[in-house]
C-alpha cells in the first residue's frame, strides 16, 4: 500500500469512527436493560452471582455452543498439525524450572478456587480453565514433552467431557419434562457446579493442546 492510499484509508476510517462515535452517544442508556429481570430470577438460578447465572443458566445455551467452538478450533488445528518444524525451546534455565515448580501447584489451587467462587463472585469455568491451561503452558516451557510422557491419554479423554456433560445435563432436564438445559430448580446449583467442573477441565486441556500443538490422538490412521 502506498503512502497516499494509507492516508486515504486512515482518513476514511477516521470519518467512520467519528460517525459511529456520535451514534454511540445517542444510545439512550436509560432503563436497566435486562438487569432487573436477571436480578428477579437470580434466586431461581441456583447461583448467587449474576454473570454466572447468565452464563450457565439463562443463556447457558451460548456457553454450551462456546464449548463446541473450542472443540472445533481443536479439530481444525489437528487437521493442520502435520509437518511443522518448530524451533526447540531453550528449557535449561534454572530460574524457570524453580519458578514453575513453585507456581504450578499454586495455579492449580487458584483454578479450583476460581471455579468454586464463581457461584457468588467473579470467577467460573473459563477463568479457572484459563489459569489451569496457563500452568500447563508453563510446564511445557520447561519440559515440552511432559504431557506426552505423563498424561497424554488422560489429556485426550478430558477434551470432550466439557461438551458431553453439559449435553447430558441438558438432555436429562428434557427427560424430566423441561426444555433443553432447563435444570430442575432445587438441583440447579449442583448441576451448574458439575457442568462447570468438567467445562473447566476440558477448557484447560483444549487451550493447552492448542498451545502445545501437534496432538496425536483420534485412534488409528
Amino acid at each position: 500500500m502506498t503512502g497516499v492510499v494509507r492516508w486515504a484509508f486512515a482518513g476514511l476510517l477516521a470519518v467512520l469512527a467519528f460517525g459511529l462515535a456520535s451514534v454511540v452517544l445517542q444510545i439512550p442508556g436509560t432503563g436497566s436493560a435486562l438487569r432487573s429481570q436477571v436480578m428477579a430470577q437470580l434466586p431461581q438460578s441456583g447461583v448467587d452471582h449474576a454473570v454466572t447465572a447468565v452464563l450457565l443458566n439463562f443463556r447457558g445455551y451460548d456457553t454450551f455452543l462456546e464449548l463446541v467452538v473450542l472443540l472445533l478450533a481443536l479439530f481444525g488445528a489437528w487437521g493442520l498439525s502435520d509437518s511443522i518444524d518448530e524451533a526447540p525451546l531453550d528449557t535449561d534455565i534454572d530460574v524457570l524450572t524453580e519458578l514453575v515448580a513453585f507456581l504450578v501447584p499454586v495455579l492449580i489451587v487458584v483454578a479450583a478456587y476460581l471455579l468454586w467462587v464463581g457461584a457468588y463472585s467473579p470467577g467460573g469455568a473459563f477463568q479457572g480453565g484459563a489459569v489451569l491451561a496457563g500452568a500447563g503452558v508453563l510446564l511445557s516451557l520447561c519440559d515440552p514433552g511432559w504431557r506426552s510422557r505423563r498424561v497424554e491419554r488422560i489429556g485426550e479423554v478430558l477434551l470432550v467431557p466439557g461438551v458431553l456433560v453439559f449435553l447430558l445435563v441438558g438432555l436429562a432436564s428434557m427427560l424430566l419434562g423441561g426444555q433443553f438445559l432447563e435444570y430442575p430448580r432445587d438441583m440447579a446449583g449442583s448441576l451448574i457446579l458439575l457442568v462447570e467442573g468438567f467445562a473447566m477441565l476440558s477448557i484447560a486441556v483444549t487451550l493447552h493442546t492448542l498451545f502445545a500443538g501437534t496432538p496425536r490422538f483420534g485412534g488409528g490412521a
Binding site: 436497566s32 436493560a33 438487569r35 436477571v38 454473570v51 447468565v54 443463556r59 473459563f126
Partner: peptide, 16 residues
Amino acid sequence: RRSDGVDPVPHAMVIT
C-alpha cells in the same frame, strides 16, 4: 453500566 447498577448480560456475552 446503567442508572441502577450493572447489567450482567453483556458481561456474560463478553466472556463467551
